[in-house]
Design a protein around this nucleic acid. Sequence first.
DNA 1: TGAAATGTTGGGGCG
DNA 2: ACGCCCCAACATTTC
Length: 502
Amino acid sequence: MADNGPPMTIVWFRRDLRLADHPALAAAARAGPVIPVFIWAPEEDDGWPPGSAARWWLHHSLRALDAGLRERGSRLIVRRGPSLEALRGLARDTGATAVAWSRRHEPAARRRDEAVARGLASDGIAVQTCNAARLFEPGTILTAAGRPFQVFTPFWNACQRAGDPPEPLPAPARLTAPGRWPEILPVEELRLEPQVDWAAGLRAAWTPGERGALARLDKFRRRGLAGYREGRDRPDLEGTSALSPHLAWGEIGPRQIWHALRPAAGPAQRATRPAARRAAAVHERAAFLRQLGWREFAAHLLHHFPHTTEAPLRPQFDWFPWRSDPAGLLAWQRGRTGYPIVDAAMRALWRTGWMHNRARMIVASFLVKDLLISWRDGARWFWDTLVDADLANNTLGWQWAAGCGADAAPYFRIFNPGLQGEKFDPRGAYVRAWVPESRGGAIATRDYPPPIVDHAAARERALAALASLRGRRGSPPGGSSPRGSSPLRSSGKRTHQPRRVA
DNA sequence: TGAAATGTTGGGGCG
DNA sequence: ACGCCCCAACATTTC
């Protein structure tokens, strides 16, 4: 492979499906010809392969990435795993002498990437990896004592003391193609799209791809940011950026968002905007960036505590008396609990692949506290149905809601679905949009079920379950489920019904 | 990034 | 006029 031309680099795309702010791509493009590749290897995600909704998104995002590459004189090679074999084969076929990628931070992906890097190095292939997915490299933000933060606010303060993340890189204007393109698998052959077309609601709601991501950011800057602190808790309004699926697939990076929201603005704007409005804008921006902070926090926590995808961070919760209640779980999944705000949110998720953050807290509290069904069942359902499914965020969110994770709500903080609805959907517009048959109050109609549990009684039951944990520590009774090993993984079974028949 | 129960206070109705 | 009581409003505590 010692030829004299400029080095040809394989750029291995994974969850960084963009051309801008992509350090590995930028470096490869500067050096010489680029071979962009995506490798489908869901079995390497160790029990957390992309779910149904995520696969739909991925299909369209890969097509968008290919289109973007073609505009720059290149294209996307698609292959199947195992990843190391695919990369070796591609290097052999093309004469590429280097492979570059953006690091993934999930435990299984990290182990896989390290093995791939070792394998390639033993072939004499140069490997370069970059951080494109998070503002700060997971593992680098630590307390004065050198330990990981377990509470959000001090973590975020430490991030801000760490200084601005680097400015985002522009997309390469042009990519040099290899002399000859190797064999390319059509994206359709990965069969990422559902066989039975349930994705109409997803199509109506989303535009996967980098262009869609940038359009969404631009719209949010112009129309969403000003009222963010007010609107962010209102599922009945479009008060959030809805960038989460684009972030999950890396169609936009957090550094791009961070810098797009900096107060930089032109001198004209600075001169004309009254000081008070400017000060308000600073707070809106900080409130929004704080949400990016939670995303950082999640990745950093998963880095330090990789077992938390399967086990509670706070070990006394190994004893928590979760109920087995398949009928309750199904009612929750299908949006038929008899609590309108819960059902609205679950139906919105099913239909659009997305749920408002406030609604996520409400439905999570309901599953975990009113139904006493394990957060792991909730996490699995979200994993299959969310277009923005992200292992770190999902793990943090569910453990937070269950009270068994970092910076967790004390267990006794139990949401009252009725009050939450009054506060955050005050006109009932969200409920009407998704549960038209519920007719306001808690009165069951012919088509709408009565509440599957009485909230007041369920609350007492949950508090009693909490009381049973007092003074506990260590591993669960019976010792059948050692921390860090996953029954799901070993049996290959899922804890819930598959989303739809394929 | 709760909610409910319990405690405190102060204004006003009324004997 | 005065004090008692009621209770809304707010604060604190508890789960």
